[in-house]
Amino acid sequence: MHILTCIKQTPATDNVQIDAVTGTLKREGMAAAINPFDEYAIEEAVRIKERVGGDTKVSCLTMGPPQAEEALRDAIARGADAGFHVCGREFAGADTWATSYALFKAIEKISKEVSPVDLVICGKQTNDGDTGHIGPGLAAWLTWPNVAYVRKVEDIKSNGTGQGGTIVVHRLMEDGIDVLEMDLPAVIAVIKEINEPRVPSLKGKMAGKKAVIPRWDAAALNISLDHVGLKGSPTIVSKSFRPSMKTGGTRIEGNSPEEKARKLVEKLKELKVI
């Protein structure tokens, strides 16, 4: 079977800088890495490959600036077989609608030119956008069934690349677990609980360095410029700002734990939170 993970290169730091003029994230010079949630997606794809065996292969797809290619090489180091890069100035500023559309067009191309994709795995969300929209959005374009917040792949049966099969997954709900079965091809978005990602292997790293990664712009994907990037996005960020952080709270002092506890409970009553 052919498993494809969608990954994103995101800032590896929590100390984000905001451009005072544009109000957007300053990405220049910032250390970047694979979005941490996508590591679970890559790991799950590799584990399914190890489980299913045969000629199963794992491809990785990203959309991003030229340097995002590093994330694909890193994914190969972590067990993926191939990487594909959607890249071009025209994609800049894409919201989740335009991003999922571009990724969908790339998946169509991969299915046609490489081999039909049976399963798309996304991370739960990115650590910079936090939306979680791409997995379900891709499913809408692909017209495939999808499940998000997957904590376990219970079973997967493939009838060969592009030949169908089924997957049984566990979805983490607020009140328990929903177990769902889908026909392949399908899309899942996975959460942290699903696995513990491996560290790259030396052989993987070398393969990652050597891999030839195709780079596709809008023309290569046959996408109208009306539907890409900022111009093709239904939504825009009209402003961004740092939230005011709470500081300067009150320190509860006391000579014993009991005294501290009493003063704290008094305060909490004053604040009417208990």
Partner: peptide
């Protein structure tokens, strides 16, 4: 909130969708 709450963003659907 985005970027784990370190950045707030106001989103508008400006093209009539």
């Amino acid at each position: 909130p985005s970027f784990g709450g370190t950045l707030m963003a106001t989103i508008l659907c400006v093209r009539g969708h």
